[in-house]
Design a protein around this nucleic acid. Sequence first.
DNA 1: TTGAAAGCGCTAACAT
DNA 2: ATGTTAGCGCTTTCAA
Lengths: 355, 355
Amino acid sequence: MSGSAGDNGSGPRSRPTMRDIAAQTGVSPMSVSRALRGDPGVSEATRAQVLAAVKAFGYQPNEFARQLRTGGPTHVIALVVGHLANPFYAQFAVGVERVAAQHGTRLMIMSTNNDLANERQVINDLRARQVDGVIIVPATPDHRHLAELGGPGSPVVFATTPPNGVEASSVIVDDFGGMRELCGRLLAAGHRRIGLLRLNRAMWTGSERFRGFAAAHAEQGVRFDERLITEHAGDSHWAMRETRRLLRLSDPPSAVIAANNLMTIGALRAVRDAGSDITLAGFDDIEVADLFQRSLTLVTFNADQLGERSAEVLFERQRPRTTGTGDGERRPSGPPVRDVLPTKLISYGEPLRAP
Amino acid sequence: MSGSAGDNGSGPRSRPTMRDIAAQTGVSPMSVSRALRGDPGVSEATRAQVLAAVKAFGYQPNEFARQLRTGGPTHVIALVVGHLANPFYAQFAVGVERVAAQHGTRLMIMSTNNDLANERQVINDLRARQVDGVIIVPATPDHRHLAELGGPGSPVVFATTPPNGVEASSVIVDDFGGMRELCGRLLAAGHRRIGLLRLNRAMWTGSERFRGFAAAHAEQGVRFDERLITEHAGDSHWAMRETRRLLRLSDPPSAVIAANNLMTIGALRAVRDAGSDITLAGFDDIEVADLFQRSLTLVTFNADQLGERSAEVLFERQRPRTTGTGDGERRPSGPPVRDVLPTKLISYGEPLRAP
DNA sequence: TTGAAAGCGCTAACAT
DNA sequence: ATGTTAGCGCTTTCAA
C-alpha cells in the first residue's frame, strides 16, 4: 500500500544486486545477467522467474559496474556552457539533445558560470566520468587546459569558438560576415556614426564581430570613431550603462550595435529610458523581438541547428573504445572538422532607417 | 608541440590506469591511490614521483571504479525538466546548480520533451547511474512510474507539482493564490468578461490556477462565461490561435489571462496582430516583459529561488548510502517536505486598466 | 541451458 | 611508508 516494491517490512537496505535476484530465484548471478540483457542463452522459464524477481525487488542494474567490466561507451555526452539562463545556450542545448537522442545517448549539461577555474574542474570531472564526448562553448580564449580532452574515446567539439592551442573540431557562426552585413546596411542607410558595444577582444566572437564592423566601414570608406566603441564581457547591465553614456555624448551615434543578445537587451532598456529614437541593432536572435516596443535589426543564426551540427560532428568522430590493452587502434578520424554556419539579417518592426 | 602529453609516439592505447602509473613509478598501485587522494600514508618523495607520472600520462582516475569500490555518493544530482528552451526551466536550473555547487555536487540536466515514455526512460537511466538524487518537474499528472525513485540514497523532490500517488517532498508555487489575486484585481478594475487560456485540468498547475480564477469570481459574485475558457497543454501557437478566436467573438472578453509564460507570448502576438486594446495578463514572469510594446500584468515568482529551495530540500534529505549489507539504516528523514513559494503581481508598462 | 572463475579499476583492511 | 589480499557489481570466458 504505502511504498512501492522491494521494501518489504523492516529496515531498508542498500540497493539490491544481481546476487539478491539470483538468490531469490535460485539461479546463478550469471543467469540473471543473461536474462536481463536478453541473451539467448537462458530458458524462457528462468528468464520469466528472473524478471519477476527483478520487478519485485525494484532492481536496477548498476550501469557503472557494467560499464567498468565491458569497457564500452557510457552513452553520455556532455555539453559545457557558460550560463544556463542565456537563452542562446538553452536553444543550443535543444539541438544537441535531439541529435544525442538519435544516437541513444544522454546529454549532461554543465555550466561553468564563465569561470576558468570552474571550467577546469568541470572538464576534469567529465573525464573522470568517462563521458563519450564533450561539446564545449568555451568561456575563455585560451584552451590549453582542454587539451586533455579529445583523447581516444572522448572527442571534443568546440562550438561558437574554434580551438586555440589544441587540435579539435569546431562548429562556429559566421561572426565576421554577419556583423559586416549588418554594419554595411547601416552605413548604406546613411549612418555615419555607429556605436558598438563589443565583446572582449580576447574572445573569438569578440574579435571576429569587430573585424566585421571594421571591414564594413573600410568598404564604404567611412572612418569609425573609436570613442563610440566600448568593450566588455557582455552583460546587459553594463550594456545599459554604456548605451546611456553613448546617448549623452555631445556628438552621439545615430545607431548602436550590441554584439550579443544580452547586450542588446541592455541597450534597449537604455534607449527606452532615454526616450531616444536612435537606431538599434544587435548580434544573436531574440525569440520575442517581434513583441518589443522598439524596432530592432538582428544578425540571427539558428542556435538549434548549431547544436545539432555540433553533436553530429561529435558523433562522427566517436570510435568505440578498445577494451583491453589493444594497441593497434586508429585515431578518432581524419583532420578536425571546422564548420561555419551562415547568419541572416532580420528586422523586427520597421526595417533599418536612415539617421 | 602538436598534441598534449601522454600520447608519446605511435599508437594511442586505451586510457591509462593506476597500474600504468604504478609500473612507471616503480611503486604499488596502492601507493598511487594514496598519493592521488592525499592520503597521509605516503612519503613526499613517492607522492611527487606519482604526480609527475600522472601528469605525464594525462592520467585521470576512473570515478566509476572508485565509486563502485567505496559505495560512496556519486556527487551528481539530476534535474529532469520538460523542455530546456522554456526560460522558466533554465532559470530554475540556475538556482538548482548554485545549491548543488555549494554541496560539491554536479548537476545533470535531462529533458523529457514532456513525453511520458521519455520520462520513464530518463528516470530508469538515472537510477542505473546512481545519482544521489533527482529533482523533477513532472511532465504528467500521474507519478506512479516515479515510485522507484526515492529509495534509500536517492531522494526525489517534485518541483511545481506535488507528488501524486508517491510519497516525496515537493516545492511548489502558490498557483491558486497567485491566480486568485490576479483575477481579483481584474474584476475589481471592472472587468466582467475575462478570457482564460488555461492549462490541462489534469495538471496540478492547470487545476490550481483555474481554482484561483474561479475563486476570485466567486468572491466578487461574478459568474464567468465558460465559452471564454479554453484548455491546452500550453504552447504559444495554440494560445495565439485561441486568443484570436476570443477576440473575434461577438461578445468578446475585455481581458485575457494566459496560464503560463509561453501562452502569454502567444496571446501577445494575437493581440498585436489584431490591433486589439484588450487587457492582457499572465502567469509566470517574463524576463524582458518591460520591453514589450503592450502592457502586461504577470503573476511572478522567483524561478531561481524555486530551484534553490528544491535543491536544499533534496540535500536535506540525503543520507550517505551504506556500503555493505548494512541493515540498521534509517529512512532518509522525517515526513516529506512540502514548501510553497509565494507569488507577486507585477505590472509591466501601465497598471491594470478598467475595460 | 547453466555455472564457476577471473577481472574491469579502484580502495578498505590488514599485513609488513 | 609501502605492499598484499580481497571485493565493489557486473560480464567475459571457459567448462559442465
